[in-house]
Design a binder for these strands. Structure first.
Lengths: 197, 197
DNA sequence: CAATGTGTATACCGTTCGGTATACTAACGC
DNA sequence: GCGTTAGTATACCGAACGGTATACACATTG
């Protein structure tokens, strides 16, 4: 009796996170009610509010958890080693494998990223998303000495590079293309011609 | 009295469309209530339901109206003349100028396009969006005789081309870059290197 | 001048919204 | 054992949700 009870209790927080992520990703943050999440997780509202305080807090917990994984992987991938093509390739592969591994989360993240700027979802995701821009922007900034013609445009490059990766990931998540190393190579090659020409 | 009354009546439908577009674009379809739209338009709910039948019907009317403009412009822009670079350039310019002219609508359209596949918004926009893919896909299909190495990949090209345009438009709508002819030229150039290499 | 049909408002429907006050259960530290 | 604390459920809050039944105002048509 003791162990069963305890195990269930420990799982509740995780179960809520998991079910909420599924529902938000499938139908959207605003369209999913708190009660529905509770039903899916097999708990009641006070339990949810005990752990997350609010619906917004629950969304932020979901984002924080999954983005941490991405953050860790990106930090080592975006470590500029003096070879820009290699670094971009590594970053692209990191994104593709992450999106393949957590497709439900990545779908949610993409939806929130393009959501209206005044929406709850956008405001929650932009905080977690800033580090991606800064990280990629630094890659281009550090590459300026080798590629002088990029000076002053590192921000544009970071944004379009990330935008292109997300375009491919969007296609991949809809089953239109496999998010493999070969696709990463192709994407990076396409991007670089735009830069260097 | 007669004319005033009549003019107001004629305007109500348009006012509802206009205010709903603004609200949906700013805060998202699900986050905006029908009552709020009515308040903004200065009418009451029965009036709205008289014209559009449902909240979903209102959204579809908004999309239909604005997409028609895009459809007309794209039809002439995507008329393949045997010169692929030129056609792509024309399409890019058409998209950029349309997005510049109707930024509020384009923001909504982008948000709905990336919304969860089971959401009301996505289902409403995908109907209107299909023609864009087909139109651009046909451009690549018609260009196959001149560019044999593209055979069998026209669908991928259409999707990534449109994805790239939307990436740039997203940046433009946030004021990070002007959506002018020069940017269109740069985007098309970057895209083609990926194709031809 | 009646009949009609369009457009609009008042008032309301049942349901669900996000969120909470209260109390009970059970494991933990003393 | 005994208080404390975390976790959970019952039951409920006021507000807002999408949508509608009814009635009325009015220009149009016979």
């Amino acid at each position: 009796m003791y162990t069963v009870r305890y195990t269930n209790a420990m799982d509740n927080r995780g179960t809520i996170l998991e079910q909420a992520l599924n529902l938000f990703s499938e139908r959207g943050y605003d369209a999913v009610g708190v009660q529905e999440i509770c039903d899916a997780a097999g708990i009641t509202k006070p339990t949810l509010y005990h752990y997350f305080g609010s619906k917004r807090g629950l969304l932020e917990a979901i984002l924080e958890q999954s983005f941490n994984t991405l953050k860790i992987r990106l930090t080592s991938a975006a470590d500029y080693c003096g070879d820009l093509p290699l670094t971009l390739q590594t970053i692209a592969e990191t994104y593709f494998s992450f999106a393949s591994e957590f497709p439900v989360f990545y779908r949610l993240q993409l939806a929130l990223w393009f959501a209206p700027q005044e929406s709850e979802g956008f405001k929650a995701v932009i905080i977690q998303n800033r580090f991606q821009h800064e990280m990629i922007m630094n890659v281009f900034l550090n590459a300026v000495p080798q590629h002088g013609n990029m000076r002053g445009r590192h921000q544009d490059y970071a944004l379009t590079f990330l935008g292109m990766l997300n375009t491919y990931i969007g296609l991949g998540l809809n089953g239109l293309t496999p998010l493999d190393v070969e696709l990463a190579r192709q994407a990076v090659r396409q991007f670089q011609y735009g830069i260097y020409s």
